[in-house]
């Protein structure tokens, strides 16, 4: 019987190898040493905080993040801004609220419970303001792209002068990691476009890394809790499995059949 099992596993292995080799074709994405990769991966708080700054000062001028609330910025496992910092961040945005008792909409300073304020009122307005290309919402952007964080980082770092044989229309840029190698977003990150409040040198690479880490957290805010719980769960299951294994051996020792 063991021969059959072996063959079955070899077939499975074969299947996995062909599917994974297929995934690995195309352009090789850049893959910096992410702190959140791996089974014990965690976010780097300072990097997330800087990443928020990059998002807020650069990306947010076109890209919304409608699924996030300001309170998320202070939650455990995220950038973990202090309560006061979160309040100040929220209060720096004008939120439309209402209707009031007169039936009028009014604006007020944001509160931590408010969703991130979008610069455009709707998708159509966003597309119209950007030459017909809708800047995608960034809330789950990392999870909605093949390659995830590596892909986002690569696109941010992938701007180049186009090769001679490629002709670009007005408002289209060359990016070697983008599908079709063309992108409607101009290079967003230039050295020094952001002055980090923690004094970190804002190189293009640093900003790309920070903002990608921030977007990864935004797409998967419970990643740290998940890793932590998963680690405990698997250790627990292994202990239980070992106990059950020996119990099984003991019970089956009463009959002459091997298990």
């Amino acid at each position: 019987m063991s021969k059959i099992n072996l063959r079955f596993f070899l077939t499975l292995l074969f299947l996995f190898s062909i599917t994974s080799s297929n995934a690995a074709e195309k352009v090789k994405l850049l893959s910096p040493d992410w702190s959140f990769k791996g089974i014990t991966g965690k976010f780097d708080r300072a990097s997330l905080q800087r990443g928020y700054q990059v998002y807020n000062e650069v990306c947010a001028s076109c890209h919304s993040m409608r699924l996030l609330s300001y309170r998320n910025l202070g939650e455990k496992g995220g950038p973990e801004f202090t309560e006061d910092e979160v309040k100040n961040i929220a209060a720096s945005f004008e939120v439309t609220d209402g209707p009031d008792s007169q039936g009028e909409m009014f604006t007020r300073p944001g509160r931590p419970s408010d969703r991130f304020v979008s610069i455009y009122p709707n998708v159509e307005a966003a597309a119209a303001a950007n030459g017909g290309a809708y800047p995608p919402d960034m809330s789950v952007l990392v999870k909605s792209r093949k390659g995830g964080a590596d892909y986002i980082y690569s696109v941010l770092m992938g701007y180049e002068d186009p090769p001679a044989n490629i002709k670009l229309d007005e408002g289209v840029y060359y990016n070697k990691y983008m599908e079709g190698k063309k992108i409607k977003m101009s290079q967003p990150l230039m050295e020094g476009i952001v002055t980090y409040s923690d004094g970190t040198n804002a190189t293009e690479e640093q900003m790309a890394k920070d903002v990608t880490a921030f977007l990864t957290w935004a797409a998967e805010p419970h990643l740290e809790a998940r890793h932590k719980m998963g680690f405990k769960v698997i250790i627990f299951l292994i202990i239980l499995t070992v106990l059950v294994y020996f119990s099984m051996k003991r019970i089956w020792s009463r009959v002459d059949t091997e298990v």
């Binding site: 299951l237 239980l240 106990l243």
Partner: peptide, 19 residues
């Protein structure tokens, strides 16, 4: 030893179900 093994399995299993 058998008793211990079974008791331990039951206990750990019960903790797991609770969790």
């Amino acid at each position: 030893r058998r008793d211990f093994l079974f008791t331990a399995s039951y206990t750990v299993g019960a903790v797991g179900i609770g969790a």
